[in-house]
């Protein structure tokens, strides 16, 4: 019984692993941190898997657990991340913003997104994943109106970060 559970879980995760990679991409900024978070999310998903009854799609359930894990871990290490190289990042953005090739623009954008807080990142993530507001609100457990309001604020915030 346990073997079957393990087998089905690993197979599903193998198939949908990009969701976890993408969450890691938004919440971490180096290779080691990416791997650590991936592993942590995998363990949390596996722990929660017996409670997954297939009411939601596996991928939807994965979004929820992965984001929750990332948000929880992010909160634990928040102080460290914020004090480390915040000024540095901001400085680099200012220096790079004049270069307008698309690749450079993207680099700056990702850096700006990294400066958002944990919940804002989760919203951006789901937005980038092409989820509509109903799905965003369900995954994050907030109202649809709240999700829209937050998203608009994030867009404004990003503009401020990019054009200080």
């Amino acid at each position: 019984m346990k073997k079957e559970l393990e087998h089905s879980f690993v197979e599903l995760l193998e198939k949908h692993q990009n969701i976890v990679h993408k969450v890691c991409r938004l919440y971490t900024n180096n290779y080691d941190a990416h791997n650590d978070l991936f592993q942590e999310i995998t363990i949390q998903l596996w722990k929660a898997y017996p409670k997954f009854r297939g009411e939601a799609k596996f991928s939807t359930w994965m979004y929820r657990v992965s984001l929750n894990t990332a948000i929880t871990l992010y909160r634990k290490s928040k102080r460290r991340i914020n004090t480390e190289d915040f000024n540095d990042v901001e400085f680099k953005i200012k220096a790079e913003v004049y270069d307008d090739t698309e690749e450079q623009q993207l680099k700056v954008l990702y850096k700006a997104v990294h400066q958002l807080n944990d919940i804002e990142k989760a919203l951006v993530f789901l937005y980038l994943e092409d989820k509509d507001y109903r799905e965003i609100s369900e995954t994050l457990g907030i109202s649809e109106v709240n999700a829209r309001v937050k998203m608009n604020r994030i867009k404004t915030k990003l503009k401020t970060i990019l054009n200080p």
Binding site: Q17, L128, D130, K155, L162
Partner: peptide, 27 residues
């Protein structure tokens, strides 16, 4: 800005390492 990011986001699927069944299992 976010739409530009979204365009790139969709292309990023191949950039991630593909973990094998065994690698996930050992995790």
């Amino acid at each position: 800005e976010l739409d530009l990011l979204k365009k790139d986001w969709k292309k990023s699927d191949d950039k991630f390492p593909k973990l094998s069944y065994n690698q996930i299992y050992s995790m």
